[in-house]
Design a protein around this nucleic acid. Structure first.
Length: 362
DNA sequence: ACCCGACCTGCTAT
DNA sequence: AATAGCAGGTCGG
């Protein structure tokens, strides 16, 4: 009973969205480049294959497998608060739309709404880049090589546990761990080209006894306890509903609440604030951002051995001061530009040079 | 309020 | 070939 996939195409310039950077810069860890320029991953509980040319994004929707939609655990509603109109549209976004629909395929209208929501397409990056470039010489210098870097509006549960995995770790291994988490505690959603995709685990699954031991056996290291304990703490506080309710809080409160969870410090909390709580000005200060800050903005911090709370706030506030309300988005552009994996995007390196580099490695 | 070492694992550079 | 160093940090002292 194979059901064919559904295709949807919408106009979108690369200056507004670059899939290759946005999906691989370490905000989501669930996208794979299955063919050159073709990305496969999950939004909500559905598998998508995305690609783009100069003018359009192409979305291939892979149908949900029948029994995955009847699985009880998948039916848990994530009612994303109602009312509360005081905040901007980003904060009251309806993630519930992603979750409540169990049809095998979404209508094109719903796909459009989903993509608009996930990629936050109502934010015009071109305009933002222009503003940020005006505000900051360094941004003006760096950003032309890194257009279309866009924040994804992610699922809080996935975001929380993915970034607990991120501590003192590299993107490659984070990706591997997140994948294992889904294989171990998620449930199958669809099989595409012989590969089965699992949903991201429910909090209840991660809170069960024995999870820490199992995760340790699978290479999570000391993060195993963080995951297990945080899942249990979330349940005590009111489950996924509680986590979603944090979206209603002002930034500082949201940040503080997330930090009550085990394995979530200032940096990871800011990642979650920025990527799934709609706080556009949150600045996660990690080793990269610290180095960027020292090199390009705040040289007097060079002598700091560790990023103390005070230094952390100084750097975050500095970026907010320069870039304003959407500082977290701007930070993401600078962060991407600093990743070694994107060196080949910088135009002073010709294709030839990159080829040589690869050969040298071997 | 600040600093420090310990912590799992696996890839890199030397 | 072995070993330190590091990777989108956090915790407890």
């Amino acid at each position: 009973m194979t059901m064919s996939s559904r295709l949807f195409r919408f106009a979108c310039k690369k200056s507004e969205l670059r899939l290759d950077i946005t999906l691989q810069c370490g905000q989501s860890f669930r996208w794979r480049e299955v063919n050159p320029g073709q990305w496969r991953g999950m939004i909500g509980n559905r598998v998508w294959t995305l690609s783009q040319d100069d003018t359009h994004i192409v979305c291939i929707q892979h149908p949900l497998e029948q029994d995955s939609s009847t699985r009880q655990e998948e039916k848990i509603k994530r009612t994303n608060n109602s009312g509360n109109k005081s905040r901007s549209c980003h904060k009251t976004r309806k993630t519930s739309e992603r979750e409540n629909n169990t049809e095998a395929l979404l209508s094109t209208e719903k796909i459009e709404a989903l993509m608009n929501d996930y990629f936050q397409l109502d934010v015009s990056l071109e305009k933002m880049y222009a503003l940020w470039s005006k505000a900051d010489q360094n941004f003006a210098y760096v950003s032309p090589q890194f257009p279309g870097v866009r924040m994804l509006n992610q699922d809080p549960v996935e975001n929380v546990f993915s970034f607990i995995c991120s501590s003192n770790n590299n993107i490659q291994r984070i990706t591997m761990l997140v994948d294992r988490l889904c294989k171990l505690y998620g449930s199958p959603v669809a099989t595409v080209d012989g590969t089965t995709w699992n949903s991201f685990p429910r909090v209840t699954s991660l809170a069960k006894s024995g999870v820490e031991e199992t995760l340790r056996e699978h290479g999570f290291g000391y993060r195993a306890k963080f995951i297990s304990k945080s899942a249990q703490m979330i349940l005590e506080k009111g489950g996924e509903e509680w986590l979603f309710s944090l979206r209603k809080l002002p930034y500082e409160e949201c940040h503080a609440q997330l930090m009550t969870l085990n394995g979530i410090g200032a940096k990871v909390s800011d990642c979650i604030c920025l990527m799934s709580m709609g706080h556009l000005g949150a600045i996660p200060v990690d080793t990269h951002v610290f180095q960027i800050a020292v090199r390009d903005y705040l040289p007097h911090l060079r002598s700091c051995k560790t990023v103390t709370d005070k230094v952390y706030k100084e750097i975050a506030n500095h970026f907010r001061q320069i870039f304003g309300e959407y500082a977290g988005w701007a930070h993401s552009v600078l962060f991407s530009a600093d990743l070694k994996k994107f060196d080949s995007l910088k135009n002073d390196e010709s294709e030839e040079q990159n080829q040589k580099k690869k050969k040298k490695k071997k």
